[in-house]
Amino acid sequence: MDYLETPAKIFYKYEGVSPTGSHKTNTALMQAYLAKQDGIAALSTETGAGQWGSALSYAGSKFGLRIQVYMVRASFRQKPGRRIMMEIFGGQVMESPSPTTEAGRKYYAENPDHPGSLGIAISEAVEVAARNPEIKYSLGSVLDAVLLHQSIIGLEAERQLQDLGLLPDVVVGCVGGGSNFAGLSFPFVRKTLKEKAAIKFIAVEPEACPSLTRGKLGYDHGDSVGLTPLLYMHSLGKDFIPPAIHAGGLRYHGMAPLVSHLVKKGTVEPRAYSQKAIFEAAKLFFKTEGILPAPESAHAIAAVIDEALEARKTRKSPTILFNLSGHGFLDINAYDPNSNCV
């Protein structure tokens, strides 16, 4: 950016031009296709900010599957736009915790305005799948197969940069469950493993939900009730209820086991940024680049700006690649100075 006056060369893979505005369609289409091949009638799922729920609803409409979405209440109320989008694609959306499942009732009975969490919404969606043979469950992040599908982000970026004769020195993505970061970075991690390329990988999370920088590495459930298998991952604990930050997609207590593994090995550097810092970065990006980023993606931007400023100090000219995983037009209220910034 001119504003940064940096010698760094900065590129971003923009996933916000997908039909629902984020990278989530990459795995949604594949998961809906596989379910259809298996003769499954419906998929249940959870969603935070709504990016995953809208992507799966879109994919369901494309491949002829019913989609049931448990949407975290904090986001359901903050981001009605994505609920509307899900419904346009035929998705059935429930506020979570809901009174429709045993898992949801546990929290709903305590407090009908419970803000919810991805962990609780996962419990509800898993319960629905476990109780109904015609419904299977679909997860938008964390699992190895989801990270596999998202690898097309990095594979395509790798070819595009190759055309310019470039290989990134720094690869950056935001992390909630880890899928957009992994999708961009894993093909480049391969380069470090196989070709000994020297690439710095930075995974950026919110200070309010710092699973990689403050969480514990060990076995934990993927959901709040404890219905899912135990995954070996960085976790803040399955009962952790993150504050209702605007980056709803990053409000998850755990982290993809493969991303956790790379952090443990020292391949990936985790960083946490405050909500205030990421919105400053996002506004600067909007003003200079003309794209309104999703609050989730703004975490990556904040780290890229720091890297670019560091390059100015060191007079080096690294190639920085980051994942601009989604647009923020449906998050615009979060940019209101009067909104509740943590």
């Binding site: 010698p7 900065i10 971003y12 039909p19 680049e289």
Partner: peptide
Amino acid sequence: AYSSLPAHSPDLRFKTNGL
């Protein structure tokens, strides 16, 4: 489905001032 999406996923380059 991936390839039929309009301008699905271009790379963009930040404007830098070429220091």
